[in-house]
Design a protein around this nucleic acid. Structure first.
Lengths: 252, 252
DNA sequence: GTGATCCTTCCACTCAGCGGAAGCCCATCG
DNA sequence: CGATGGGCTTCCGCTGAGTGGAAGGATCAC
């Protein structure tokens, strides 16, 4: 009776991808029914497609029945071209910052109206940090995010300013106030946050500009510490040295 | 006239995955025809499927027409569970080794009869290194590989010993000789290589055993240097300290 | 212009994919 | 211990999504 009745604008490929992309930071392991729900597919359909994805090596089935992303897909994902081999060239410099400050160090780029974290070195200090490598966060509430936003095209800024989600009492949710900060950031060449993403975490961040202080901003480096009161200048200096080094390594 | 004639045991999903997995270390960017050839698909079919993969955000099309793995897939790939969050826990220890030795440091696990590199910190010394994070290498010709092989199940050893590809004049291609080395590795608790993978590169590696010296081997750490003559003891010590630290962090 | 190479579109055929329904398995509960 | 329920798996008849040979463009080299 049933038959291939409904397939409203969805192809097999798009469904399969919907299943793959059903995984995220909060959902690293999913059961079949969760997958079906998150990909918005009927259970039998999800069952079959997931089976094929497992057979093809894109997903793996745990002994407890839950599904996870496979190592093979991890391998393929790593082949994605990140701008100018940024991670590789930045690596040593990030280690330097980390060694010098013992803070949590971030390397991030902007993707649309979100921050994409390319690298994170966890610091010694007990600061709560929500970022993970490969995760997306908004642009308005983190150090690296504000830097990336400050140098983003007008339309991106507009879109980002239109949704200033509140995370803590200190998150800047007033567009006008944030815009003023963006001007300051461009003038001073760095951004700071004080508990705007997570209580107990402050940050400093600077842009990476391979072609010098007038060239485009391709990424941002930043660090997270419990407070900025005493060490701000030293932290900023470490960041700026690294950012310049990374910039130079990219053009070279 | 044609019609849906041939589909020999291949589903849309399997074909789409074949296209995704057509990318590898040596082929980070592929043209449509290369993709079609590598996935063994007729060109029109590849064209359509690749189009859907791009639409779905799994691949991206460069301005020059070549296709690459998308950042979105990078993001999803990072969600793959690697044993016990090995990368995260090992990170600081690897940094320590790297700082102490300035050599190229590797963290790897065994997957089937190959070494899978989870992490690499590039050293200062100008040593040619072929590994990349996410890449696979054989088990018989690298330091970490030999460690992983020494503690692998019998059937894996058998399979690995059956194909000892030669990379340099020093690569061990004689099964009997390698087997003797594996015994030594288990006795001494570490492996070395001398220009067996790449000319001008030697290595030391030790196993990571979370449950102590009798427990299973879950991974290996190793480092690559121009030669082992003088520093062998110091390098080995640094590795063993780190391996123990990592092992303890995992069980904790 | 001619030829080669690669990409894109067309289209008639048909079987791979579809998903409601039903069956299973295994907890949990009264 | 039977009942209830939630999640997974299998079944199966219908049909339009997927197929790929052929043809049409686009681009470059000589």
């Amino acid at each position: 009776m049933a038959g291939r009745v409904s397939t409203p604008g969805a192809t097999v490929v798009s469904r399969a991808l919907a299943l793959l992309f059903a995984f995220d930071e909060q959902h690293r392991r999913l059961t079949l029914s969760e997958l079906a729900a998150r990909a918005d597919l009927p259970l039998p359909t999800a069952h079959r497609l997931v089976g094929e994805l497992v057979a093809g090596g894109a997903l793996a089935k745990r002994s407890d029945g839950a599904y996870v992303v496979s190592r093979k897909l991890w391998t393929v994902g790593l082949l994605a071209p990140l701008p100018s081999g940024l991670r590789e060239t930045a690596g040593p410099f990030l280690n330097d910052i980390h060694a010098a400050t013992r803070a949590t160090v971030h390397l991030a780029i902007r993707e649309g109206i979100r921050t994409l974290y390319l690298e994170r070195l966890t610091g010694r200090a007990s600061v709560p940090v929500v970022s993970t490598v490969g995760s997306y966060l908004p642009l308005h509430s983190t150090g690296v995010g504000k830097v990336l936003l400050a140098y983003a095209p007008a339309d991106v800024q507009e879109a980002a300013l239109a949704q200033l989600t509140r995370f803590t009492p200190h998150t800047i949710t007033h567009a006008g106030r944030l815009e003023k900060q963006l001007i300051e950031i461009r003038e001073r060449g760095y951004a700071t946050t004080t508990e705007e993403m997570t209580l107990g975490a402050c940050s400093v961040a600077v842009p990476i500009r391979p072609l010098g202080p007038d060239g485009p901003v391709v990424a941002a480096v930043g660090l997270v510490v419990p407070n900025l009161r005493s060490h701000r200048a030293a932290l900023l200096a470490a960041l700026q040295v690294a950012a310049q080094g990374i910039g130079r390594s990219i053009t070279a």
